[in-house]
Design a protein around this nucleic acid. Structure first.
Lengths: 223, 223
DNA sequence: ATTAAAATTTAGGCATGCCTAAATATGACT
DNA sequence: AGTCATATTTAGGCATGCCTAAATTTTAAT
């Protein structure tokens, strides 16, 4: 029996397991899930006994195909829910992460299908993350971090971190949402703020925010 | 902190506490929730310590105002969910009880409000049960049991039990849904079947089914 | 290679919520 | 009032999932 806690761990490990072969360490999981390292070790033992991951003691874990499949299903639930809550129910994009975190564990496959149909089988959630397909395909596009873009470049916003409601409200107020074209006008030194031209207006945002926004370089354009 | 299990107990006790002052006994709760009597005693102790109910040892329990309030909120969630799943998402009415039983504990107040708005602040769920108002008003109409209606009488279907998916599919196939006008043509003796005239056609249903359907007497009519 | 710091695991504990078996209280009948 | 069946509670146990503190392993630095 897969419990909600197990699903949460599998999801976290999947998302932290950036490189396909990279091992994920206990401490990283513990920090991401806000539990003690000892708790992570305990859960790892349980998941390993169910062959949902392989554990190399003291050297991290790696999901098996079975573990990956469950993680992808949970992530599909989560991202479909986020989009459904925004598009169909009228939630603002800062509230949906928390709501989806609870709902993702309890909805049925039929609920998932009804959402997918209502949304026209979407591929991207409100924050720009790829929605895994039903058969478990998840190719996360790898975008660049806005904070690391050179000044002068033109970019398109592609993704924002979804778990910081206040930051999401701030970003929405600036127009920094997926799809928005933006120019990095200047970057102040000593980790200073970025000056961005968004929709014709200049805004200054700190590096911390800029590290939570992911972009794609545009063809250089003159506007 | 109110756990999901506590919410389930409070909901069950509320629904079993038919008369306003009636005590609900341990064994009745145990049977309704499919757990042992000992488990019920344990949970009762916990709920009593939180002053959500009063426990008169060996003589049953009675919800306090606080306990009632929580029960009503859970029931409001459940019934709004059932209607939302049917009306907005396109579920059939036999599937929604199970889905709502899981969702009712995890949705936010905002989720509840969005559903109520989308549905136009409804008062009745797909099976004919009253949806408590936000301020906790629940006047359950008391209908008559179809099995106990005298032959010859005209009735309107008002309510059906929502937790037996197969029976719900059967009833829907017959047209025995809330709002349907029906005549009890005959009742076979020795707990035999009822002959009903529904939408011009005669159908024969067993007593067990007829005990799960609740009706209101119509003005006697000639049709 | 030794040692110290950091990461990880083990050990033991706690709350929740379920169980079975045993003890106890209630209520109905004689 | 005494007896017995039934209902309820108490006692003790188990799985889950978290915790802290102690022991152990790894890794990095000298």
């Amino acid at each position: 029996m897969i419990t909600h806690a197990m699903e949460d761990y599998l999801k976290a490990i999947y998302l932290l397991q950036k490189g396909e072969d990279a091992k994920v360490h206990t401490s990283v999981i513990a920090q991401h899930m806000d539990v003690s390292a000892a708790s992570v070790t305990g859960m790892i033992r349980k998941l390993a006994s169910l062959e949902l991951l392989n554990h190399n003691s003291y050297h991290g874990v790696k999901l098996t195909e079975g573990g990956k499949k469950i993680a992808q299903e949970v992530i599909r639930h989560h991202r479909l829910l986020e989009l459904y809550l925004v598009e169909i129910m009228g939630f603002t994009w800062d509230k949906v992460h928390h709501e989806a975190d609870k709902l993702e564990h309890v909805i049925s496959e039929e609920f998932e299908e009804k959402m997918a149909e209502a949304l026209g089988h979407p591929t991207i959630d409100p924050h720009g993350h790829t929605i895994p397909t039903k058969d478990g395909n998840l190719k996360e596009a790898s975008y660049k971090i806005l904070a690391e873009i050179d000044s002068g470049r033109f970019v398109t916003i592609r993704q924002v971190n979804d778990d910081l409601p206040e930051m999401l409200r701030y970003l929405a107020g600036l127009g920094l949402v997926p799809g928005a074209p933006v120019q990095v006008v200047t970057k102040a030194p000593f980790n200073g703020p970025l000056c961005l031209k968004i929709d014709g207006f200049e805004h200054h945002i700190g590096r911390e925010v800029a590290r939570n926004v992911f972009v794609e370089l545009s063809e250089t354009q003159t506007d």
